[in-house]
Computed example of a mutant assay.
Amino acid sequence: MKIDVIIPVYRPGKEFCELLERLSHQTLPVNRILLMNTRTEVDVEALAAPFPGAEVVNLEQADFDHGGTRDWGAGLSDGDYLLFLTQDALPADAYLVEHLAAAFRDPTVKAAYARQLPKADCRETERYTRSFNYPEESRVKTEADLETLGIKTFFCSDVCAMYERVTYVKQGGFVKRTIFNEDMIYAGGLIKSGYAIAYVAEARVYHSHNYSGLQQFHRNFDLAVSQVDHPEIFAGIRSEGEGIRLVKKTAAHCLEIRKPWLIPGLIWQSGWKYLGYKLGQNYRKLPRGLVLRFTMNRAYWNGWED
């Protein structure tokens, strides 16, 4: 089993070398680590040099795309499986790759993603969100789950996800130009093609962010844009109800742990999320100037007119 790792890199922080170190000590060794590096003042070649198998592929900032850059990396691989990670996702132990690979013993599974654990500095409400989106129980999702899970059937995060390469190529890979959400777009195509996606709770990475309300707004704006731009995947799939359920359960959690003062912050964050999402759903009705203010990926809109 040959497994290649693909990591988009942009001004890597202190976790980056720790990530490479942990990848080099997996019980199931990886073959190559392809670092798709957007050129900055950071010398990524020097950071990667101590790690065997790490290869740096340089690109310009204008050429970066969430789907296209990852697909470029996939095209450089001849491995059996492709493991995509973000530069700030830290394997929790030496068994990450082994656990993800084990999911493919089920021949219907063509993608597997890991559980994301909160980092030490994670806020309480975000910590609960991690447990909501990444529970302790593994499961395999198929098209039969659409009625009960809705859009979560397509959930698969490239923070840490593995794909069978032959099927990846057969399906056309990641969409070559997308503002965001390349993982769910691809996963939705898998599900609709009759394949399965595995959530592997035993495969764990540390990954969380303490986003501000405005940052949540920008992310959810782009998330909604990606869904609008791909009706072949998302049209007719219920989505907003899952967000409402998360808010209600997080508020109940705050009461359960006797920290009701966290609820106003939760409402504030959720309001920004909802506003960003609704505006993103209607981005075609907005003037270009507003779209550029609302997005977190301005380069995506080059060449787009009102």
Rank of each mutant, 00 (worst) to 15 (best):
V9W: 09
R11W: 13
K14Y: 14
C17E: 10
L20I: 08
E21K: 11
E21Q: 07
R22I: 03
H25L: 08
H25A: 01
Q26M: 04
T27K: 14
T27M: 05
L28C: 13
L28A: 14
R32V: 08
L34S: 05
L34V: 12
L35N: 06
M36F: 11
T38Q: 12
T40A: 06
D43L: 03
E45K: 07
L47P: 02
P50T: 01
G53W: 12
V56F: 01
A62R: 15
A62H: 08
G68P: 13
T69L: 11
D71C: 10
S77I: 04
S77Y: 05
G79Y: 02
D80M: 07
L83N: 08
F84Y: 14
Q87C: 15
D88P: 10
Y95C: 14
L96Y: 15
A111M: 13
A112P: 15
A114M: 09
A114C: 04
A114I: 06
R115F: 02
P118L: 02
P118C: 06
P118Q: 07
C122R: 02
R123Y: 07
R123C: 03
T125R: 10
E126C: 02
R127I: 00
F132Y: 15
Y134K: 06
P135R: 02
V140M: 03
K141G: 00
K141R: 15
A144W: 04
A144P: 00
D145R: 01
T148K: 14
L149G: 00
I151R: 10
F155Y: 12
Y163N: 05
E164I: 04
E164Y: 12
Y168W: 12
V169P: 00
K170V: 05
F174K: 12
R177W: 11
T178R: 03
E182Q: 14
Y186G: 00
S193Q: 10
A196I: 12
A196C: 03
Y199V: 01
A201C: 09
E202M: 03
E202A: 15
A203H: 05
H207A: 10
L214H: 13
Q215D: 15
A224H: 01
G236N: 03
G241N: 02
T250C: 10
I257D: 11
R258D: 04
R258V: 02
P264W: 13
G265M: 12
L266P: 01
I267D: 00
W272Y: 12
G276L: 11
Y277P: 00
G280Y: 04
G280V: 03
N282S: 11
Y283S: 03
L290G: 07
T295D: 01
Y300N: 03
Y300D: 09
